[in-house]
Design a protein around this nucleic acid. Structure first.
Lengths: 207, 207
DNA sequence: CATTAAATGTAAATAGAGTTAACATGGGGA
DNA sequence: TCCCCATGTTAACTCTATTTACATTTAATG
């Protein structure tokens, strides 16, 4: 099977549906596209998707993988722009996260949405490095090696930083980050917090 | 109008619906109760709710207020158990938050869900102190007065702490907080992070 | 190469949920 | 007391997900 104008058998419907769904999510900035519209966009009938996905959640799950990969790619790109072991690389990861959360609002929320099957997720997600978390761990470890004498648990510290970053991103998405002080700038607040966490962990002077 | 067995006119349907919805959310730990079931539970027909709420989102909004108040009450209670200016009070707020997020999963996610109307939310939310944020601000300010010479922006520092706490709570809810290290304990990680943020802000020694 | 089972599409039906429309009731003020 | 309006009711209506029964290829098999 080659390209577009196939009759009856599409040839690559599964992927076409994932792309169609992603486009609709992108277009409307919401997750409530209809299966029928995704199917139509892929050029098939409304029932066809059910040959490839058990239900809408299964299709969303596939899009979720895509979204997580997308964030991971951005993270990798951001990290590559800064010298290893530098704090700038770590801060850039945070900025990338905030930027993604803003620009890809619906995809971002899709990522953290309720999904079932803990263990299955755990596997998928771990394989994909889940949006670049291991990249952050690498940056954190490198930073600590350059800036601390004592051994530091990179995963632990990275989890602290991720939590902070995720908190800022989600509170901003809920329009609550500057509920009581409109002047608060998410990036600045995050940067400062991350610096503090790094200083606290390494025991060094302010950066 | 007095109590229960009213015919035709319910008497207090609006509140009865809010309670019914909250009960269903509590029972199923999910937000997808049906309007019909909420109505039935309140003893009215499926169309009756629309005399009091424009749509399901409006009913959810009312429940959301309740949830936010509930968290605020817990926060107030937690704060009252610790001496003013102590770090224990601040840490207890975090524990309360994590506990609420676990115990009232659906209510918790409802709080941060997409809702429209930014400015309206801002008003409602600010009036209600949004889950006890101002209590946290008070605790933080008191702490800083006891532990620092320089002036500290309490709202800013409290926002950092809230972000951290919110990040831990939401990542835990998504089962991601210990994705790469199953031994991570959310409370411990949060406590440590909050201490670091406080130390960083006050410039004092580790607590 | 013909046959046929498995995979993948289609159209039409089903079912559940939100929401609206048209009508009913009854409590409270003029 | 009477009438209006808020509040309920029942019966549609619409939109979606999903299933069922049937159609068409593809591809493996003899």
């Amino acid at each position: 099977m080659s390209q577009a104008l196939r009759n009856y058998h599409h040839g690559d419907l599964r992927n076409a549906l994932i792309i169609a769904a992603a486009e609709l999510i992108e277009r409307d900035s919401t997750l409530d596209f209809t299966m029928a519209e995704a199917a139509a966009r892929a050029g098939v009938s409304a029932a066809a998707p059910y040959r490839h996905f058990a239900d809408k959640e299964a299709l969303l799950q596939a899009v979720r993988q895509l979204a997580i990969l997308g964030l991971g790619n951005r993270a990798a790109k951001a990290a590559s722009l800064h010298p290893g072991g530098s704090i700038e690389g770590i801060l850039a990861m945070g900025h990338t996260y905030l930027h993604y959360a803003r620009e890809k609002r619906a995809f971002f929320s899709l990522m953290w949405e309720d999904r079932g099957n803990i263990e299955e997720i755990r596997e998928n997600v771990a394989q994909e490095d889940h949006g670049g978390f291991m990249i952050l761990v690498g940056l954190v470890k490198a930073f600590c090696e350059h800036n601390s004498d004592t051994a530091i648990d990179g995963v632990y510290l990275a989890t602290q930083i991720w939590s902070m970053t995720h908190g800022v991103a989600t509170l901003e998405a809920s329009q609550l980050i500057n509920l009581f002080d409109r002047s608060i700038d998410p990036e600045a607040l995050l940067d400062q917090s991350v610096r503090t966490l790094l200083v606290g962990a390494t025991g060094h002077q302010p950066l």
